[in-house]
């Protein structure tokens, strides 16, 4: 299973990559939204793990771009963000994310959720 991780904070990006690779996924990690979208169009991942606040293209814009791309219809999006207000969660789901996790987060829970959203996306 292929995962694209879009996270601008190096330590978090590397930790997520390590955890997902340890769980057996093929991971492509990028530091901004634009690079993540380019990579997603190239590798057609099962799941994209997206940080909200990123340079160039933020997580919401990335999610909207993924939803508008016919080649990525089978890709699930998991938003990982420090934004925890009710309206932020609503905005995230309105943009088309499949799941939403708030930082500080548990990397183990993230792996479980990635597996769950990927499984749901496959059965769509």
């Amino acid at each position: 299973m292929k995962i694209v991780v879009a996270e601008d904070e190096t330590e978090i990006r590397e930790l997520i990559k390590f955890k997902l690779e340890s769980a057996g996924f093929e991971v492509h990690a990028e530091a901004d939204g634009e690079s993540a979208l380019r990579t997603a169009r190239r590798v057609l991942p099962d799941v994209i793990v997206v940080d909200w606040m990123m340079p160039r293209m933020n997580g919401i814009e990335l999610c909207q771009a993924v939803r508008a791309d016919a080649s990525l219809t089978g890709t699930a999006v998991l938003l990982l963000t420090a934004k925890s207000q009710e309206r932020d969660v609503q905005r995230g789901f309105a943009a088309g994310v499949d799941d939403y996790m708030v930082k500080p987060f548990s990397p183990r829970e993230l792996v479980t959720r990635v597996e769950a959203v990927a499984s749901r996306a496959r059965s769509r």
Binding site: E9, I12, L15, F105, P107
Partner: peptide, 15 residues
Amino acid sequence: ALARGLLPHLRGVDR
């Protein structure tokens, strides 16, 4: 330095 970068974002067993 690495721990300072990770700790604010983590909870659970890994933290």
